[in-house]
């Protein structure tokens, strides 16, 4: 369900992150170049309610992974705040966990699965071996698998281990960063179903990060669409798919390959994602937008709060979007 009157579990408030991607100082002086700043995330605000799955969807350079890392505390924001529960967070908290994209790089290849899972167990009074076995069974593997090494498992099984590891910390909230994009379709379905079941059973909240609209639609209650580091639209799932407001959301939906669109001859979207180091002026989407006018080229749109959803677009604000 959507964030109603209940207090938010996670709140991102005007979040921003700038990376310095300049060359070293000496090279800059010699080559007469300026500092290069990459605005990976700019002014992103959203809330995640308890027991809600909030998805961030976007293409490369949208800043979705950066936001996920900032939420769990692996990266510090350069602007804005993150609040967990009622109190602004200080330092890292074990109530937050993360499931990573790569089933291969996310586990130390030289550790046994038991130790990989046990590492996240925060409570020292727990019998780690027993707990690891219990968690493995919860994610559909067997307790004996705890003695094995990661390379003895397939990609899908490793992602189950990653889920077990995240659960070992007894979290309220898990950031899932493209957890299935490295998996095959049939295995992806297994992992997505497992994650959905666990979310219901343990009353978890997810921040689900993905580039795949179909996956997001299957997992999320609420969806935020990112373009070049800005949140362009934020809406409940059904509303977003039934009536996408932002032209970029529409383009994404239009471009997503469909199983029932045999020999589709629809005109493909125009243009490509601009260089995030040198983004277009005004609304970053204007060079690709069919509705762009002069105002879009000069003035960045502000976020327009509608009933239960937000959108940042001049065309919608002016009623030109039809």
């Amino acid at each position: 369900m959507t964030a109603g009157p209940r207090p938010a579990l996670v709140r991102a408030d005007h979040l921003g992150r700038v990376f310095d991607v300049s060359k070293p100082w000496l090279n800059r002086v010699l080559e007469g170049e300026d500092r290069k700043l990459l605005h990976a995330v700019t002014d992103v605000s959203f809330e995640i309610a308890p027991n809600e799955v909030y998805a961030l969807v976007g293409e490369s350079g949208s800043g979705k992974s950066t936001i996920g890392k900032m939420i769990v505390g692996l990266l510090q924001p350069t602007a804005g705040d993150i609040a967990i529960g009622e109190s602004p967070r200080t330092g890292r908290s074990t109530r937050l966990q993360m499931i990573f994209q790569s089933p291969f790089a996310s586990m130390n290849p030289r550790w046994r699965v038991r130790d990989i899972i046990a590492e996240t167990i925060a409570d020292p009074s727990i019998d780690r071996g027993a707990r690891a076995g219990e968690l493995l069974e919860k994610v559909g593997l067997s307790a004996e698998d705890a003695e094995k090494f990661p390379h003895e498992f397939s990609g899908g099984q490793r992602q189950r281990i990653a889920v077990a590891r995240a659960l070992a910390a007894d979290p309220d909230f898990i950031v899932c960063d493209e957890p299935t994009s490295a998996l095959d379709v049939s295995v992806q379905a297994q992992v997505l179903n497992l994650m959905r079941d666990l979310q219901e059973e343990l009353a978890l909240s997810y921040l689900f990060i993905s580039h795949d609209l179909a996956v997001v639609r299957y997992m999320a209650d609420r969806i935020g669409v990112l373009y070049l580091g800005r949140l362009v639209e934020d809406a409940p799932r059904d509303a977003l798919f039934a009536e996408p407001l932002h032209p970029y959301t529409r383009m994404l939906l239009e471009a997503a390959p469909r199983l029932d669109a045999f020999g589709r001859e629809a005109p493909p979207p125009q243009g490509e994602i601009p260089d995030p180091i040198d983004p277009p002026s005004g609304c970053a989407f204007h060079p690709r937008c069919p509705l762009a006018n002069r105002r879009c080229k000069t003035e960045a749109p502000r976020t327009l709060a509608l009933e239960n959803r937000c959108v940042a677009c001049h065309a919608v604000e002016e009623g030109r979007s039809a």
Binding site: V185, S186, Q188, A189, L192, D212, L213, A214, V215, R217, Y218, R237, D238, F241, L253, A256, R258, L259, D260
Partner: peptide, 12 residues
């Protein structure tokens, strides 16, 4: 085909 999530239909 059944395992492939879709952006259309009411299978959400």
């Amino acid at each position: 085909m059944g395992a492939t999530p879709s952006t259309s239909g009411d299978a959400a």
